[in-house]
Amino acid sequence: MSVALFVPCYIDQFYPDVAVATLELLESLGVDVEFPSGQTCCGQPMANTGCNAETAPVARRFVEIFADYDAVVCPSGSCTAMVRHHYAEYFAADDAAFQHVSTRTFELCEYLHDELKVEQMHTSFPHKVSLHQSCHGLRELRLGQSSESRVVRENKVKNVVSLVNDIQWITPERSDECCGFGGTFAVNEPEVSTEMGRARIADHINVGSEVLASADMSCLMHLQGLIRREKSPIKVMHVAQIMMGRPIH
């Protein structure tokens, strides 16, 4: 089985350790991972602005690069949701490569949970951790049950991260409220975005969390920006880094 790693553009540029941790984690579980060259972006920034014409060539390029792999794994719920749920308008419905890539692209935790069915890990993360559930992971990919929904679903992110030894979960008061990143929303509506982010950070700090964790680094980029500006007493980490037992930095 050939597995490709898709590293979202901003992770490649700003958070390489998230991708390294993802790669090392998959390798430690016996997966032979390839990193196809030439990959850049899934096209979400353009699509979420409504620029279909600008999204189309980026989406088509993505499918070409990843079409020959049995599975594509990505350490981002949001980018995975883009490929799985929002590519249809850029391809013919019977396009086999598109069908294959959109159904075989997985968010990291989802891949560990559903495909590899991981049952144990040998790493340790002896810290108080609270989970920020990214909206697209939760409500587009359905990696867990949203607080609005009464459809019972397993929380795939929490299930796999809980396999790390010594982790201590802390639950924020609002379990799945948006952090206010929202891609270009963060700069279109900076004041509302900032207020939403501050409220999330305060919630996680108030319940005594040391590490605010998420399966989406884009939410964390926004929250970390606020945390560093305001010198708030909490750190952010991607779940791949936690699953690899990285030190808090």
Binding site: N48, G50, C135, H136, L138, R139, E140, S146, E148, S149, E177, C178, G180, F181, G182, G183, T184, F185, N188, E189, V192, S193, M196
Partner: peptide
């Protein structure tokens, strides 16, 4: 339509 972070809570 841009006054929205596309969090999807409304849909659910």
């Amino acid at each position: 339509p841009y006054a929205c972070s596309l969090c999807g809570s409304c849909t659910d």
